[in-house]
Design a protein around this nucleic acid. Structure first.
Length: 364
DNA sequence: AACACGGTCAACCGCGAATCG
DNA sequence: ACGATTCGCGGTTGACCGTGT
């Protein structure tokens, strides 16, 4: 038996609000308030709308002092930091941003910030024209809006850093800041107001949180997600904080992160192909076509993009002209990261490929 | 010029929490 | 204490629009 509907669906108008409806609702609430009962409100005003719809319209659009669009750098920072620490609790995040609604922030996160974090560049935003009059105004307010995603948002990811040649060449890579040693530093910095409470990724717990958010689990967690094509197993014991098996076709690879003796988070990729016949065992470290396809394309399973996109693992990891020498220690296999060393041990098994360039220094 | 595709965002939906009687 | 009602939230949908082919 289903839940009773909150209103008579048949007599309720849905879809975009007209200016007349907006005016009715706004003037009534400004004069009388909501009366503490949204369900009864539309009948009082003579609106053929669901009470929930009225509430949403008022909260997200009509109430005073609302800001739309044009998120500032500081707001970006706050959203990112809070998302890392509390997740998708948009109402809580919105409470930290006066004039912003949870819906606005949610949309902004989903359409821009998340992609930015994952290194997926959106197309230049455009003026949406006459979507409706207010929106048009908002788009104007957004200004060139066109560049907000690149020039202002996520300054936290970009401050202290300059665009590198690598980033210019590979627009799919995020703009992680680089320190003077050309070593990537951890991406998220907690903005000042949250300096003492929000985590950044400079510690194991924060990294674990991020990894869990992205779909994994640590031992002890009751939740064990099954992502398409992925088996996720994290161990919070010992030094290894992250391990993930990737199965694509008949191939498998394993990605892990460990805290090494230097207190650095080190990402490694290992590959194992148990019981797979068509592997090129004993052929000097060639990969199966499907594995090569996996790593040379962008077709990574959901949940792993962050590793690739954050530069921890470059999806151009394998160049077919050099993989034949994969088995040789310290052979450069990255076109763009020449110092990367790999080790190949045993037939058909890549025991370790430590992405030394991407060892993330941890906060001391 | 026409169509497909993808980004954006307002609005909807369903669920759990809170409140009421 | 308990069921009904309402609220509030987060996820999802779909219309609209610009861009690419």
């Amino acid at each position: 038996m289903g839940r009773a509907p909150c209103c008579d669906k048949a007599n309720v108008k849905k879809g975009p609000w007209s200016p007349e409806e907006d005016a009715k609702l706004k003037s009534y609430i400004e004069k009388h308030g909501t009366g503490g009962n949204w369900i009864a409100l539309p009948q009082k005003i003579g609106l053929k709308r669901c009470g929930k719809s009225c509430r949403l319209r008022w909260l997200n659009y009509l109430r005073p002092n609302l800001k739309h669009g044009g998120f500032s750098v500081e707001e970006d920072d706050i959203i990112c930091s809070l998302y890392v620490s509390i997740g998708s609790r948009w109402s809580v995040i919105a409470a930290q941003l006066p004039g912003r609604t949870d819906n606005d922030i949610k949309n902004y996160w989903n359409t821009r910030l998340k992609k930015k974090l994952l290194g997926k560049h959106r197309r230049e935003p455009r003026n949406r024209g006459n979507y409706n009059s207010v929106k048009q105004e908002n788009d104007v307010n957004r200004g060139s809006g066109t560049t907000d995603g690149d020039s202002s948002s996520l300054s936290l990811l970009q401050e202290n850093g300059s665009t590198t040649h690598h980033q210019e060449q590979h627009q799919q890579q995020p703009c992680w800041p680089q320190n003077i040693n050309n070593m990537p530093v951890l991406p998220l910095q907690v903005p000042l107001p949250y300096k003492n409470q929000g985590p950044c990724f400079n510690d194991q717990d924060s990294l674990k949180k991020l990894l869990i958010k992205l779909g994994g689990r640590f031992s002890g967690d009751s939740y064990h997600p099954t992502l398409d094509g992925l088996n996720l197993e994290f161990s919070s014991h010992g030094q290894q904080i992250y391990q993930e098996q990737v199965h694509v076709g008949s191939s498998a690879a394993c990605i892990s992160a460990t805290i090494n003796n230097n207190n650095e988070v080190q990402f490694a990729q290992t590959g194992q192909y148990p019981g797979v016949d068509n592997l090129v065992q004993g052929q000097g470290g060639n990969f199966t076509p499907s594995f090569e396809e996996m790593v040379s394309s962008s077709n990574y399973p959901d949940g792993l993009e962050f590793l690739y996109n954050e530069g921890m693992i470059d999806h151009k990891i394998i160049d077919t002209t050099t993989t034949t020498t994969w088995g040789e220690t310290s052979t450069p296999i990255y076109h763009h990261h020449d110092s990367l060393a790999s080790t190949y041990q045993g037939q058909g098994v890549i025991q370790e490929c430590v992405l030394q360039d991407f060892s993330y220094p941890r906060a001391q």
